[in-house]
Design a protein around this nucleic acid. Sequence first.
DNA 1: CACGCGTGGGA
DNA 2: TTCCCAAGCGT
Length: 354
Amino acid sequence: MADSVADRLLAWYDQHGRKNLPWHEDRTPYRVWVSEIMLQQTQVTTVIPYYEAFMARFPDVKSLAEAPVDDVLQHWSGLGYYARARNLQKAAKAVMADHGGEFPKDQEQLEALTGIGRSTAAAILAQAHGIRASILDGNVKRVLARYHAVHGWPGQTAVLRALWEHAEQHTPHERVRDYTQAIMDLGAMVCTRRKPDCEHCPLADDCEARAQGLTAALPESKPKKAKPEKETWLLMIEDDAGNLLMERRPPSGIWGGLWSLPELDTAITLDELPEVAERELGIACDDAQPLSVFRHTFSHYHLHIHPVRLRHAGTAAEMDNSDLAWQPREDAPTLGIPSPIRKLLTQPEQTTLL
DNA sequence: CACGCGTGGGA
DNA sequence: TTCCCAAGCGT
């Protein structure tokens, strides 16, 4: 009989595993936690520079808890899934208020923190404390779905239950920290979604998917729907000094909590625009000019964006509305701004024409 | 439970 | 150009 899955993964990890990622040094619960949240649905190479900057600005839970939310969102700007950033700070405040500034070493209490689910809680326990806990991220799901030839899409309850069961069965009692990293690394480096490198896989000998010729077919993926087309109108209101009017988006929905251009979700004529802007925003403007329409693709839909330029005569006064702010067009470094909007502001001529 | 939530890179 | 995906979680 071959060595256990854990033994083979650990031996492979010693030879080939990733050990020099930024969050591998000084594995405090805080540093592990921030890395795990950033890495949710986000690739390692994307995360690295964000992680470095975030840690420099917010070196510990206390600094994160006490920071202005716009400061946190600014450091998340471009990473996507912005609820993660808001939840991160909410959890940091809870750690300060309810746990004396120390992360609980308990799965249940970790999961009670906003944004920490079963897998992230386990990762913190295993990586920061070496406590035996099982993770099940996309990499592990793929490895286990193939090794055990689990059919069905991982969103299905029965499939998820089976995968969690396998994950817990394989988790060793020793070297949990390395094992957790090892099985993720195998999924990321060998047992990849496309073109898996089975020749160099330590689990190939008794991999069920390999034996049955199902490697490419597993894990199965959810049947997808066509992306709907949506439309929106964005107001680029500029004053005489070249400042643009920005508006904070509502906390839920796309780009929640970030700063963007004032938005209208219904078409209106250019003639009506100044009146609507005055009524909705309290800003007097004129000279409405349509710019080139462009299309931005999100995960679940396409968005046709109609930018309209408006002029605000005079220089902007202080706003009494905290969800509106005048910002220089070139750089708005203290605010979290979504990438497509940032692009529109800084290089409007380079946006794709329709 | 199904869906909403972003972005940049690769095929 | 277009599609798909990558260290999930909240609702």
